[in-house]
Design a protein around this nucleic acid. Sequence first.
DNA 1: ATATTTGCAAAACATTTGCACGGAA
DNA 2: TTCCGTGCAAATGTTTTGCAAATAT
Lengths: 149, 149
Amino acid sequence: MKDMHLIVQKLRDRGYRMTAARQAILNVLLSSTRPLSPAELHQRAREKYQGVGLVTVYRTIEALIDLGVLRRVHREDGCHGYVYVGYGHRHIAVCRICGKVIVFPGSEDVLALEEKLWQETGFRVDDHLLQFVGVCAECQAREKEGIQQ
Amino acid sequence: MKDMHLIVQKLRDRGYRMTAARQAILNVLLSSTRPLSPAELHQRAREKYQGVGLVTVYRTIEALIDLGVLRRVHREDGCHGYVYVGYGHRHIAVCRICGKVIVFPGSEDVLALEEKLWQETGFRVDDHLLQFVGVCAECQAREKEGIQQ
DNA sequence: ATATTTGCAAAACATTTGCACGGAA
DNA sequence: TTCCGTGCAAATGTTTTGCAAATAT
């Protein structure tokens, strides 16, 4: 919940108003380590503030992506989830067992790849989307013990 | 259209039957350099074989993704497109002006990143999704001439 | 022959929009 | 007091399913 104050500030700076619904949605996002679908987000936000509507969830997601602190996660099945990633971060690794997301800063390794692509094909990269899928440390430990999920 | 024979073979091996509809859809996919949405794919396939239904397009996409030769492309707006990428290829770069896709093989640069992630967090990467967005060489040239797409 | 594949209509979902009211600034 | 934000209902779009007829093997 550490960035709450900062985000609220940024939202105000951009002319967004702070409402109970947005507080609730923001709260849920900041305390979740895995990507939530709009529907899940809606459900959880309601636990904190009764009157949140699904439409408001969509609109808040839009605002937070616009702000740059929320990340859309693509699942292989085509659905979307959203995770809070904060500022300056770029890459995520999604655990396919527990769904947890690890966020880590962008790296020069990708820059090297972009450079190589440019030299070989002339393609100029403006942005990239890098998403790892695998198993987190905790779930690996759990796998060893033979305990499922 | 070079891989047509190979793909048909693979499909048969898996028990899929070859039909006119699938031929048409496969033809369109193999001759397109940019990702097509199911609707676009449907439209184009109809030009080759009148009676293709949209549902069949969805089902064929499913089969080809299952085969591993078709790649789902995530657009920032949440829509999906599909491109033929062949076997053993992993990464794509999408031109945001003409939509063309460049496919290139996976690289050790990403492996290095995976290794780093593993050492620092214990996360074991099984798969990754890397997608570049930028401007291809041709569109850059066109930009210089001041001619808009 | 016979099991798969098909197109269609309808169902199921996900996302967006129009609108009058309520609430933050 | 002035807009922005809200929830609702309805519109839009996309993807999936049920089914009997058609077809590849």
